[in-house]
Amino acid sequence: MLRIDALSKTYADGNQALDTLDLNIRTGEIVALVGGSGCGKTTLLRLIAGLDTATSGEIRLDDAVISGPSADIGVIFQEPRLFPWLTIDDNVAFGLSHLSAFEREGLVANALGRVGLSGHGHRWPRELSGGQQQRTAIARALITRPRLLIMDEPFSALDPTTRQSLHRHLLSLWDESRPTVLLVTHDVEEAVSLADRIIVMRPNPGRLHEEFPNLLSRPRDRMGTGFESISRSILKSLDQSLKPIPQPAARATAGEAAWW
């Protein structure tokens, strides 16, 4: 289980990105975070990935406090972030340097096959399309069999067809080992088609606004009434999350009262 307790993050410039955020994610659950710009989604993912440190609060993965990058956590970024000087094979094998070449070869061939890139291992990243590069990044993140997979808008730069194809790939890969998945997305449809739970965040500072359990069975029909209904609710919640929280009416000071 991923457990986040009273997590806050304030940057050096005084910008408070997250404010006392609490969140629990069950093992094997897929959770999507949605929210407007500046609501701290990416900050939260970076803290969980151990790429940044919290101002206060704690993150635990199966009772172990996360204080830096961990072998149990895989990260897929918005861009594939492949190393251009390594072939696809070597990119996928990047986290396997502790294994023998023979072991690496077998695992990489298997991982590439699972993301539909068999036969592309000898190629350079520049020779692949954006969708293929992102699939390579998915294979690289999953080959180490992480218990928690963090995805920061991994499909946002792709066309709708490639995106849906990658959704199917991701779900079939997830189904094999059932890692916990935390996904950040701006696309409500994507969140509803992938996640077991969708959490709407509100900005300034980033907080949890509302959450929606998604009990629709997979594969999910985007045209189905259940899908549309939950999507509408999330969109409505997103709308509300962007409205400023009403402040209690300010009381007039003694001086102001005298002026009246």
Binding site: V115, S118, G119, S165, R168
Partner: peptide
């Protein structure tokens, strides 16, 4: 695991 045939890229032709 078998992937959906429509999404696999195996056997893509060599570059032109």
């Amino acid at each position: 695991m078998t992937l959906p045939a429509s999404t696999t890229q195996a056997g893509a032709p060599p570059a032109e």
